[in-house]
Structure formats: C-alpha cells, structure tokens
C-alpha cells in the first residue's frame, strides 16, 4: 500500500503501533500471555507449590503449631493403617465409579453417534451437557431425597414387596448402613450420577469421529457386526473413554461433599483434607493428603496421554 499510505499525511498512531507489533511477534506473545500466566503461573501454581512445601512441615503434637522445618514425618503419617485405609477406600471408589460410568456411558454415546438423527444428536448432546454444567450440589442433594428411608427407592422396594432384599443389601458390613442415604451405596450412586456426563461427552466425541465408511469397510471385508464392534469401534472409542475416566476418577478422588452428605461415616481423602486443615488445624497433613490424588492423577494423566486420550478431549 505504498501509494496509499504516502497519500495520507501520517499514518495513525494505531496503525504505527500495529506495524511495530507486526515486526515484533515475540512482544505480542508476551503481551498476550503476561496477565494469564501471572494468574495461572503465580497465583495458581504458586499456591500449589506453597501447599506442597507445607507438606514437608509437620505439626508439633504438644503445641499444635506448625513447625517450619523440612521433614518427611508428615508423609510417614500417611502410611499409618487408618490413613492407608482411607486412601485405598477412595481409590477403589474412584475406580468403581469410573467403571460404572464407562458402562453406562457407552450405550447412550453409541446410540447418539450411530443412530440418532442430526437434530436428535443436538437434542441428546444438550440433554447430556445440561446436567454436566448445572448445580453439582443440587444434584447431590436430590439423591438425599431419593435415597432417604422413606423416599422413592424405599417406596419402590416396599411396593414390590422387596423390603427384605433392601434390608439384606443394607446389612452388608462396611458398605451398608441404616439407610441407602447413609451407606456406601448412596455415595457410589451419587458419584456415578454426578460424573456420568463427563464420561458420555468424550466417549460420544470419539465414537462420532469414527467415519461410517470405516464401518462399511470392515463389513465389506467380511466382519460381522459383533466383530466390527469389538475390533474397530471399541478400540477407536477407547481414547474417549479414557479421557472421560480422567474426570470421573479425579473428581471422585477429591470430592468431600458426596461422602459427607450421602455416606456412612467412613472417611474419604477429601474429607480428611477438609478436617485436617479446618478443625484439626494440621495443614501439613492436609497438604500431604492432597499430594496423594495429585500423584495418582499425574500417573493417570501420563498413561492416558500415552493412550492418546488428550486428542479426544
């Protein structure tokens, strides 16, 4: 535009600024990223780092004050039987919830991807994402209503004359309780319910990406529908399921609301963290406890990344 810019008396300040920035792309990058990185890098990562740091301090048992000296004592406390139980309980719950979510999510994802019309897909997608984004707490609360002794489930069992069965289920030691809403069943159901959409969306996305022609190619090469399903569809959907499992697993590991509202009194990691940093004032132990899900999640993310789950997010 040499001819035109020379016709103007002097290019505007904005224009000159734009040209200056054009010649200094690195500066643009710095300008764009400065504030966000300050936020995420300093506020967020800084806090995480500070927390990690505190896990290497310990609480003086006599004074109840935090001793700011490097020690691994707090981590040693993690390995007491009671604490190990909590960690194992949380991990087992996270794994069971993840598997249940995967099993429930697959059929509906498959239906959405393969059979729903294009308007149907939109409707299904919205139907699944609405609960995903909305009112975690209210959704947990709804299970309190449903699972209460006098609530819907109890009523159904009564109506069907199956009360003895319900009582037998509740009588199972360690996972049972006085009613469904104060038992591991309740915890489990609420977890599955709350995180299910997190599993459906990536599974559906992965399935949706499998082109129809690929399934036709499989059939054309002589595969029966079951074979196509096991050998083509499932392997291609797996990264999506793994991506979903990152959420279901991680969210379950760190949650303290659901076991509090709907559990028997067995503790989960999240609750310990809450109690230790709150009423007990033992920030080092709380910090050490948060390291557990972090470590588990980093290992999980590493494996998931290897399996190609991030492309499916």
């Amino acid at each position: 535009m040499a001819s035109i810019s020379s016709a103007e008396p002097s290019p505007s300040f904005v224009r000159r600024l734009s040209t200056f920035l054009h010649k200094h792309p690195a500066l643009v990058l710095i300008l764009l990223l400065a504030v966000p990185l300050l936020w995420l890098g300093v506020i967020y990562l800084g806090s995480l780092g500070a927390l990690l740091l505190q896990s290497f301090f310990k609480l003086d048992d006599f004074t109840g004050l935090v001793v700011r000296e490097f020690t691994l004592d707090t981590y040693r406390q993690l390995f007491t039987q009671a604490n190990l139980d909590i960690i194992i309980r949380s991990a087992v719950m996270a794994a069971t919830v993840t598997i249940a979510c995967a099993l429930l999510a697959f059929p509906i994802s498959f239906y959405m991807a393969r059979y729903a019309s294009s308007t149907g897909k939109v409707a299904f997608y919205i139907a699944v994402t609405l609960p995903l984004w909305s009112s975690y707490l209210v959704r947990v609360y709804s299970w309190k209503l449903i699972l209460a002794k006098e609530g819907v489930i109890g009523w159904i069992f009564q109506a069907l004359g199956l009360e003895p069965l319900l009582n037998a289920i509740l009588a199972v030691p360690t996972i049972g309780g006085p009613s469904l809403s104060v038992s591991m069943y309740g915890t489990f159901l609420a977890f599955v319910y709350v995180w299910l959409p997190y599993m459906i969306i990536p599974t559906y996305t992965a399935l949706e990406r499998v082109p129809r022609s690929m399934l036709e190619a499989s059939a054309d090469l002589g595969a029966r529908p079951q074979q196509t399903f096991w050998r083509v569809i499932l392997p291609l959907a797996l990264p999506g399921v793994i991506a979903g499992s990152i959420f279901t697993f991680s969210l379950t590991l760190g949650d303290y609301i659901i076991p509090g509202v709907l559990g028997n009194s067995a503790f989960f990691i999240g609750q310990v963290v809450l109690v230790q940093q709150g009423t007990a004032g033992n920030i080092p132990l709380a910090a050490a406890f948060t390291v557990v899900p972090m470590v588990i999640m980093f290992i999980y993310l590493f494996i998931a990344g290897r399996l190609g789950a991030f492309e499916a997010l």
Binding site: M1, A2, S3, I4, S5, S18, T19, H22, K23
Partner: peptide, 16 residues
Amino acid sequence: FLHGAEVGELPPYERD
C-alpha cells in the same frame, strides 16, 4: 522488492 521498493518486514496491510 515491489516496484523497486524493498518491502522487507512491511506488514501485509502496508503492501500494494
């Protein structure tokens, strides 16, 4: 060069 003038680092919007 565009019409004899070196364009070097000139941004697209300054070129005719």
